[in-house]
Design a protein around this nucleic acid. Structure first.
Lengths: 334, 334
DNA sequence: TTGTAGGCGTTATCAG
DNA sequence: CTGATAACGCCTACAA
């Protein structure tokens, strides 16, 4: 590995001190016009970049954001958010490091890992928010942004699940549906919000949903949704439309519907949630709610960096990012 | 942010010098039994972890692996590899950082970013391998591992596309198919290998494939595969089976087949590539080739770390990871 | 077996 | 406007 340019070489080449060189790069105004230019040119020609480790050591700012997640990143939802978060972070000069519990065979807490790596702040998402290790991290004083969950004293970005669900149900209502079943995911905050949206819509539209129409399954789990679908189909009074926990789970439900000889949307209607690529490519195109993952990710990065760079003045904020209905072909008018 | 334990505090607490403390953690044998124990206990109680930046500065080893990719990470293929790479890296004491071109508004080369961040090595995958900036990185002397592409002097992990394709074609042959069309992806190395496998199988099984049966579309692109499918259906002598670039693209083809009134596999057979979760959940279940992403990712991490930790003795290696056929329900016997 | 000292590359203070 | 200088936390000859 050939040597990397340092501040010292630039100093030598320009015949100035390292202090002066450093000042040029850190926006100090007390440097001569010519000197500054010479330094910049030398830096350019040497391909100079400040050494991140040295800078971090000195300033205790690593320009590094930690990302904590547990669930597989396979969910399109998460990977899209991550991609967008990353892009925005880079734009603002930050890199990204994944935080986990074991590093080099040794088990450590998330907080320790985060400190060890010198992350300036953390994005927390897709984790078990009741995990004490997660709470410890969230309460450590390190700037935090969480997605789809609100911690006591930090910012968060929330996908507008309440409104999303309301819009979806309202759409179904307008298409004539009154018997709407909802297969939901696990007991996460997200689920509660969607349930709230569901019930609010029903109430304001003045129609009742029998308890039997509410079934618990899981996210990203076609098998569970298939089972839930079976259960719904056995009811004496079948729903005319079934809402699935997410687009992918819908596949499992669809299989079950077809097995029962039902065609979507002719015999029964259905809708998903997320607005994945898949949902818009399959036929019939799925009616679903598109979550604005791009906005969620970049907003999270902005909030986090704002908190990092203004430790005194910044005040935690909850940003709600709205999605929008994707009208597909799986909901018939009745 | 409350202060983090340093080597100095441990030293003070134990009444020894910082050098001694450092030695304890770095496996030096010349430290008294008792002293060592005392140091370890103090470290434990203080929750000590070495400061990554300081250590990196001193040793010029950051315990940090860079990951370079360009295509969206949305492809399940990549995100699975990344997940597995990350897990193995962590197990061996390394963290992961994404490398890109612009950091803080300033445009820099991949190599510069990598150096700036002090990555000990790089994983390169899902990029345009002809990009001069990528070649510059690969030829920089920094340890490199690439996936599905071989660089001159570094290790790589290759999914066994040749054999995978051969097995797939052989399976189709055994099911009686002779008119097999192949819709392929863009002109990547991967594509060439699959083509090679395809042709080898045809030759050894002694049947000919008319040029019309080979159509170019793209990866992860249902629209293009739909168009290609349409093209194939217009032929006078239609294929009895169509191979798609990947599982997701198959969806586009399937739509087209159904629009033409063809049922899979009754009227026409089809197969994908990748073995995504989706492929195994849809009905009929897709016949496809499962790429062993878990092995690819962890092998890549192992090779990379080996190269990093044995700069003198390590010799680049090409590891081929085999996949396996997933027999679905989309290929009928004829 | 332990300690001293110098330095990795950078920034920031303070004197010139 | 510029330059010594110390310090960030850690590692490692080398000296004791």
């Amino acid at each position: 590995m050939f040597p990397i340019a340092t501040i010292k070489q630039i100093a030598k080449q320009c015949g100035v001190s390292t202090a002066t060189v450093s000042k040029v790069f850190n926006g100090y105004s007390d440097v001569g016009e010519q000197t500054a230019r010479a330094v910049r040119e030398a830096a350019e020609s040497l391909g100079y970049f400040p050494n991140a480790a040295a800078r971090a050591l000195k300033t205790s700012r690593a320009y590094n954001l930690g990302v904590l997640y547990i669930d597989q990143m396979q969910h399109e939802f998460f990977s899209q958010i991550l991609e967008s978060f990353k892009r925005q972070a880079e734009r603002q000069g930050y890199d990204i490091t994944f935080i986990s519990r074991n590093i080099g065979g040794r088990l450590m807490s998330y907080l320790d890992h985060c400190r060890y790596r010198g992350c300036d702040g953390m994005l927390i998402t897709c984790v078990d928010f009741t995990d004490p290790l997660v709470s410890a991290l969230a309460g450590s004083g390190i700037p935090i942004v969480s997605i789809d969950h609100v911690f006591g004293n930090s910012s968060s970005v929330l996908s507008d699940n309440v409104t999303g669900m309301q819009e979806l149900v309202t759409h179904l209502y307008e298409r004539g549906h009154r018997k709407i079943a909802y297969i939901r995911g696990e007991n996460y905050d997200v689920t509660h919000r969607r349930m709230a949206g569901f019930h609010r819509a029903c109430r304001s539209l003045k129609f009742n949903v029998p308890a039997m129409y509410l079934v618990q399954a899981g996210y990203q789990n076609p098998e569970k949704s298939a089972a839930a679908t079976r259960q719904l189909l056995e009811l004496d009074d079948r729903p005319t439309c079934i809402l699935y926990p997410d687009d992918f789970s819908y596949i499992g439900g669809l299989n079950e519907l077809e097995r029962a000889g039902l065609r979507v949307p002719l015999d029964i209607s259905a809708a998903g949630y997320d607005g994945t690529h898949l949902s818009q490519v399959m036929r019939p195109r799925l009616t679903t709610v598109k979550q604005d993952t791009a906005a969620i990710g970049s907003t999270a990065a902005e909030l986090l960096i704002r908190a990092i760079e203004n430790p005194e003045t910044d005040v935690p904020e909850q940003v709600i990012v709205s999605g929008h209905l994707l009208l597909g072909e799986t909901v018939s008018a009745i």
